[in-house]
Amino acid sequence: MPGPASSELLDVTRGGVVESRHRGSLVLLDASGDVEVELSDVTVPIFPRSALKPLQTVAMLAAGFTGSTQTIALASASHLGEPVHVAGARATLAAAGLDETALRCPPDLPAQPAALLAWIRDGGGPAAICHNCSGKHAAMLATCVTAGWDTATYLDPSHPLQQVVVSHVERLGGSPITATSVDGCGAPAHTIPLRALGHSFARLSTADAGSPERVAADAMRAEPMLVSGTATPVTELCLEIPGLLAKNGAEGVWAAALPDGRSFAAKVDDGSARALGPLLATALRYWGHDGPAVRRWGAVPVLGGGRPVGVVTAAPSLLQRLSLPPL
C-alpha cells in the first residue's frame, strides 16, 4: 500500500550503473516520539504484516500466555524453519497439551537452505510446523488454552484472542485499525500508519520492567536467532547493537527501536525483501552505529558471475537527507 509521492530509498547498481531503484516511505522518531525524518506520507495506513508480531505477542502475554524467553521470542518470529525454530514451536504446543495438528498455518518447507536439505533428506515434506509463523500460531493456541478459549477457531477475527490483539495494536500505536484482511499465515492482518508502527516499537522498547511490552521486547533482544534465523539482518544487526528491537514484515516493511525510545519504520513500495537490510543499516548509521554488521548490511553486494559487481545501498538523496556519507 504505497503512499503518495513515495521517495527514493535505495539504489541497485551494476558496473557503476543504477540498474534498479527501491522507493517507499520512511520515518525516524526521536526519543520523545516526535518526527525527526519523514519521507513520503507516513500517516497512510499500511499492512505491517509480520512487523506486527511483537504487538500480537504483547496481547497474548496480557491474556495469560506464559513461556520461556525462547518461546516468547519465537511468538514474535518470522523464522526460517531451522531445527531450533521447529523444536521451539513444538515445545510451546506441548506445554499447552497440544501437538502440531492444532496449527492452522499453511504447510511449508524450511526457508534456510541447510535446514531445507536436512528436512527433505529425513523424508519431510511441507508441514505447518515449518511455516515461518508457526511460533506465533503455537503461542496463540497456548494462549487460548490458558484463557479457556476455543482452539479450533483461533484465527477467526471475531475470536476473543483476535479481539484482544486488535485492542493492543490500537493502544500501542495510538491509532485505530482502518482495515483488516488475511495474512499469509491465515491470521488477521491489520492496517496502521508507519508512524504508529514506529511509535508502538518505541513503547515496547521503553516499557516498564515486567510489563507484557517489556517481556516481549526483552525476549526478542535476548534471542534474535529465534526471531529470524541464520545470516539475516534481524539476527546479525540485533546481535551487534545492544538493546536493538527490530522486526521485519512481508512486502518490504521494517520497524525498529533503540532502548532510549528512538524508533524507525519503513515500507518499500515494491515489497522487495532485499531492501530490508540496507534500510535498517542506514537507520542505524543515522543513530550513530557503525559496526561490521551495519556495514555489511548497509551495502549488500550485487553478484555477476559469482562475484560482486555492484551493490544495494542507500540512495544519494536518502544519504543527503540523513547527513550520512556513502559506505
Score class of each variant (00 low, 15 high):
residue 299 A to T: 10
residue 173 G to W: 07
residue 33 G to N: 05
residue 55 L to H: 07
residue 229 G to I: 04
residue 319 L to V: 10
residue 94 A to I: 13
residue 327 L to I: 13
residue 240 E to L: 10
residue 275 A to D: 01
residue 302 V to W: 02
residue 170 E to F: 03
residue 322 L to I: 07
residue 76 S to T: 03
residue 207 A to F: 02
residue 24 G to Y: 04
residue 278 P to A: 07
residue 86 V to Q: 01
residue 187 A to G: 06
residue 327 L to H: 07
residue 90 R to C: 09
residue 271 G to A: 15
residue 267 K to T: 08
residue 177 I to K: 05
residue 303 L to R: 05
residue 4 P to F: 02
residue 295 R to T: 12
residue 271 G to M: 14
residue 58 V to N: 05
residue 275 A to Y: 00
residue 293 A to H: 04
residue 16 G to E: 11
residue 277 G to H: 02
residue 85 H to Q: 02
residue 274 R to E: 12
residue 196 A to V: 08
residue 55 L to Y: 03
residue 280 L to Y: 04
residue 8 E to C: 11
residue 184 G to D: 08
residue 299 A to D: 07
residue 19 E to N: 09
residue 44 V to R: 15
residue 158 S to R: 13
residue 250 A to I: 10
residue 306 G to S: 05
residue 78 S to F: 03
residue 87 A to I: 07
residue 97 G to H: 01
residue 46 I to W: 10
residue 3 G to K: 07
residue 148 G to I: 11
residue 224 P to K: 01
residue 314 A to T: 09
residue 176 P to S: 13
residue 320 Q to M: 14
residue 288 G to M: 08
residue 266 A to C: 15
residue 257 A to F: 03
residue 172 L to D: 00
residue 53 K to A: 02
residue 298 G to N: 03
residue 192 I to A: 02
residue 87 A to D: 14
residue 28 L to F: 10
residue 16 G to M: 09
residue 83 P to F: 08
residue 115 A to D: 09
residue 172 L to K: 00
residue 58 V to A: 07
residue 251 E to S: 14
residue 28 L to E: 04
residue 252 G to I: 06
residue 259 P to M: 05
residue 299 A to L: 09
residue 90 R to F: 09
residue 99 D to R: 02
residue 182 V to R: 13
residue 152 A to R: 06
residue 163 Q to K: 11
residue 197 L to F: 06
residue 5 A to G: 08
residue 167 S to R: 13
residue 180 T to D: 09
residue 310 G to V: 09
residue 194 L to F: 10
residue 98 L to Q: 08
residue 223 E to F: 10
residue 71 T to K: 00
residue 167 S to W: 00
residue 164 V to G: 12
residue 115 A to W: 05
residue 80 L to D: 01
residue 135 G to T: 09
residue 147 A to G: 09
residue 285 R to C: 09
residue 99 D to T: 03
residue 316 P to W: 11
residue 76 S to W: 00
residue 251 E to I: 13
residue 254 W to I: 14
residue 130 C to T: 12
residue 247 K to T: 04
residue 246 A to V: 09
residue 322 L to D: 06
residue 23 R to E: 13
residue 211 S to Q: 01
residue 273 A to Q: 13
residue 71 T to E: 07
residue 188 P to Q: 10
residue 5 A to W: 06
residue 104 R to P: 00
residue 320 Q to V: 15
residue 283 A to C: 11
residue 46 I to T: 12
residue 119 W to D: 07
residue 234 V to L: 14
residue 266 A to Q: 06
residue 115 A to G: 14
residue 110 P to K: 04
residue 98 L to S: 08
residue 114 A to D: 15
residue 315 A to N: 01
residue 258 L to I: 10
residue 171 R to P: 01
residue 57 T to W: 03
residue 7 S to M: 08
residue 174 G to M: 08
residue 222 A to P: 01
residue 258 L to S: 02
residue 150 D to T: 12
residue 45 P to H: 12
residue 251 E to H: 14
residue 207 A to C: 08
residue 308 P to S: 15
residue 263 S to Q: 10
residue 326 P to T: 12
residue 38 E to H: 10
residue 176 P to E: 11
residue 47 F to P: 01
residue 6 S to H: 11
residue 206 T to M: 05
